[in-house]
Simulated scan of single mutants.
Amino acid sequence: MQIGNERCSIAIDKMDRAYDILNEIFTIRNNIIAERSIRDKAHLSRSSVMHILAGLKEGDMN
């Protein structure tokens, strides 16, 4: 029975990691969409837009 529990635990860990990866992909995709949209409308450099987005994410706009 111990081997069955270990397999279940491994499967759950893999599912959790897959979920984390999917969330990361969606976050990156949304950031890219936001970055492109802001850059196109504001005529700012990509690095400027990414700096602004990072500040917004952290709640720091200095």
Rank of each mutant, 00 (worst) to 15 (best):
A54D: 15
N23A: 01
I10Q: 15
Q2F: 15
V49A: 00
E58N: 14
M15S: 12
I33Q: 05
S47I: 14
N30P: 00
I21G: 03
D16E: 15
R46Q: 11
E24M: 03
R36V: 11
N5K: 07
I3G: 06
I10V: 11
N62W: 07
I12F: 06
I25Y: 06
I52A: 01
D60I: 15
S37K: 10
S9Q: 14
M15D: 08
M1H: 09
F26L: 07
I38E: 01
D40V: 05
K41C: 14
I38Y: 01
I32Y: 05
L22G: 09
N5E: 11
I3E: 12
M50V: 10
R36P: 02
R36H: 07
E24I: 03
E35N: 05
S9C: 10
L44A: 02
E24T: 04
H51M: 14
H43G: 08
I10H: 09
H43N: 12
A34H: 03
L22T: 14
I21E: 12
M50G: 00
I25A: 03
R46M: 04
D20M: 04
S48N: 10
C8D: 15
M15Q: 11
K14V: 11
Q2Y: 15
S9D: 10
R39N: 04
L44H: 02
R36C: 14
G59C: 02
I28C: 10
E58D: 10
R46C: 02
I33L: 06
I52T: 01
C8G: 15
R46L: 05
I33G: 03
A18T: 04
R46H: 07
I12S: 09
A54I: 02
E35S: 09
S9P: 02
S9N: 11
A42G: 08
D40W: 05
R46W: 03
R46T: 10
R36Y: 09
M50C: 01
I33T: 12
A42F: 12
L44Y: 01
N5C: 08
N23D: 12
D60V: 13
T27H: 00
D40P: 03
N62S: 04
I3R: 07
R7A: 08
M61F: 14
F26P: 00
N23P: 02
R39Y: 02
A34Y: 00
D40Y: 04
Q2E: 13
M50R: 07
A11E: 06
R7L: 14
C8H: 14
E58K: 13
M50S: 08
S9A: 15
N5F: 13
I25C: 10
S37P: 01
